[in-house]
């Protein structure tokens, strides 16, 4: 739900302000790759109606955001292209290699799924780099990144709960480790987010 909220916040910003200033297209494209490689089992592995609907929402909304940033006349003009310089392959290639080395089963779908877990952990980096370069971070963008970080942190709590409460729950070290790293990457952002919230000031990251 926090993940869904983050997407709603981002779409709200882009749609109402007709601006994507401070939003990293690189991160959005990495997320698109994360969802495509993770949800390849959309039609073959039915978990629940909720699960299927959420997968479709995450996939379509991410491509919708990318369309807005690349294709929409007004939104496209507000994109900070010169500041959003992070290279995709810096993250994609190491994650691919890691997925080929560390996985639970050597099948195409499983390796791609593992790749998506690793890539998700670091997909926020271009956004955080761009954020540091952006002087005026608007509230919606700040809250968007907060929700995006919070959902993985909440997963950590959920994993602990499931580990103790569910009978047939198996340890999933790959997901846990990646989730911990993903949350740790946000630690610095969370610190400044709460600091500005407490002081009732605009969010600002130190250079």
């Amino acid at each position: 739900m926090t993940h869904l909220a983050s997407i709603c916040l981002l779409l709200l910003k882009i749609h109402t302000m007709k601006s994507c200033a401070g939003v990293s297209l690189k991160t959005q494209e990495l997320y698109a790759l994360v969802f495509v490689t993770r949800y390849l089992d959309l039609f073959s592995n039915f978990v629940s109606m909720y699960n299927t609907i959420m997968k479709i929402i995450f996939l379509s909304s991410t491509f919708g955001i990318i369309w807005y940033m690349r294709g929409h006349k007004l939104v496209r003009q507000s994109y900070d292209k010169e500041q959003d310089t992070f290279r995709h392959y810096f993250l994609v290639i190491p994650c691919m290699v890691l997925a080929l080395v560390i996985h639970s089963k050597f099948t195409l779908l499983e390796v791609l799924w593992t790749f998506s877990i690793y890539l998700e952990a670091v997909a926020i980096l271009p956004q955080l780099v761009l954020l540091q370069r952006t002087r005026n971070i608007d509230n919606l963008t700040g809250n968007y990144i907060f929700c995006l970080g919070a959902y993985r942190a909440l997963y950590l709590l959920n994993w602990i709960y499931r580990y103790f409460m569910e009978k047939n729950y198996h340890a999933q070290w790959i997901t846990w480790m990646a989730g911990m790293i993903q949350t740790a990457i946000y630690a610095d952002f969370f610190y400044y987010y709460f600091k500005s919230w407490k002081k009732n000031e605009r969010l600002k990251l130190p250079a």
């Binding site: 978990v47 699960n51 959420m54 995450f58 569910e166």
Partner: peptide
């Protein structure tokens, strides 16, 4: 067989 807790998350 479906492994509980492996691919049932988003």
């Amino acid at each position: 067989a479906q492994r509980t807790g492996s691919h049932d998350e988003l």
